[in-house]
Simulated scan of single mutants.
Amino acid sequence: MTLLSVRNLSVTFDVMPRGAWPWTKPNKLQAVTDVSFDLAAGETLGIVGESGSGKSTLARAIIGTVPAASGEVIWEDTDLTKMSPRDRRAHRRETQMIFQDPLAALNPRMPVGEIIAEPLLTHYPQTSKKEARTKVGEMMERVGLLPNLLNRYPHEFSGGQCQRIGIARALILSPRLIVCDEPVSALDVSVQAQVVNLLKRIQREMGLSMIFIAHDLSVVKHISDRTLVMYLGRQMERADARAIVRDPHHPYTRALIASAPIPDPVREKARHRPVLEGELPSPLDPPSGCVFRTRCPIARPACAEERPPLVEIRPQHVVACPYHDEQEPYQILPAETELA
């Protein structure tokens, strides 16, 4: 069953030129352009891409903290973009977010028990203090924290513990969708694995759907059912999480896989690593046609003329590159087997 359908979603920001007069017309920054996907109940969609590719903006537009310029965000049969603020606020019980910086996302002046209970008391003010305290204790145990720590403050916890507090806070309302905005990027590698495994376990126990945003394709492959690759606000490729690592078709996806490190210095040194040329273009002045053409190793003159559509090359695998089949067949090198 499809829980969430995103259709041609675009997000635009007005940016005033530096030193401009107050009456100067702002420039348009196209942060997200025509992104579409479906998310089934209990499924995890991973979203990957460089910094500035629009991953977090897309997530915030789905949640509703950033207004969409156009497109639809359909929750079951309801378009969330057309909801009134009152109805949208009530719907936020169904969707919660886990943020990138675990410490900055927590109020330093509130004890942990109050932080976790805040969403519960906001949406269900009739909840008694005793009932709230009981639910907070149960949720802390579920995420691997001792309930007797609820009177401590965020600065008394490690980064991994703070992220567990953020997860408990997001889960206290028993939502149906969790949006994870790079929840492990600020953590040590060993702690990353613990948090990812915790999220997978909780997803199984609670039947959650999840949108997981990250830079690391190996992490996304481990937790996701499908992966969406973004570049400069546009979709480049979308497929099964393992298929997209084993057989990537878009040149940008191949470059992302090549950039993922392998924790073996001998194998990493022997690995063939193609490097992308150039810098990420400004979203205020994106390239014409295909936005990736200025860095693409197989770009043609025609790439500057027309934006390539998403084409389904096999069931549930779409690519925004008309020349993807003109590349050399992709082969996973021995040093890359850990990524696949």
Rank of each mutant, 00 (worst) to 15 (best):
R273F: 03
I167A: 08
A241I: 07
P322F: 11
R238W: 05
A214Q: 09
G137F: 03
G233Y: 09
R314H: 12
R242I: 14
T33F: 03
R169P: 00
G64Q: 00
G233K: 01
F99E: 03
P322W: 10
V143N: 05
E277C: 04
M206S: 03
I211A: 04
V35F: 07
R300T: 11
G289T: 05
E50K: 09
P265R: 12
V6I: 12
R109C: 07
V136R: 01
P265K: 13
S84R: 12
I202A: 11
T253W: 05
N8Y: 05
W75T: 09
I98G: 10
P265V: 13
E326P: 01
I172F: 03
P301T: 08
L3P: 03
L4H: 04
V66H: 07
N151F: 14
G71I: 04
R273M: 05
N27E: 15
S70R: 14
S51V: 07
G19Q: 12
D181R: 11
V35M: 10
A186P: 10
R89W: 13
P102F: 08
P322Q: 09
Q161S: 09
V189D: 03
V311F: 01
M16G: 13
G71Q: 03
K130Q: 15
T57G: 04
D34A: 13
A193C: 06
C162V: 01
A20P: 07
E76K: 12
V6C: 11
P281G: 08
G166K: 05
I298G: 07
V266Q: 11
L333W: 10
V48C: 08
R86T: 15
H91I: 00
C296Q: 07
P26I: 00
R88P: 08
E118V: 06
R204S: 02
L29T: 08
A105E: 01
L3C: 01
Q316M: 14
I47L: 07
I262Y: 02
P308E: 15
W21Y: 12
D325N: 13
L333G: 14
A105Y: 01
P281W: 03
S209C: 09
F292E: 08
A258Y: 00
S56I: 04
Y252S: 00
N148I: 09
Y252H: 02
R88F: 08
V275I: 12
E336Q: 15
R93H: 03
P26R: 06
L9V: 09
R169W: 12
C162W: 03
A132E: 06
S282Y: 04
M230N: 08
L187S: 00
S282N: 06
Q316N: 15
R234W: 10
I211Y: 04
S174D: 15
V318Q: 14
H222M: 08
K269Q: 06
I172A: 11
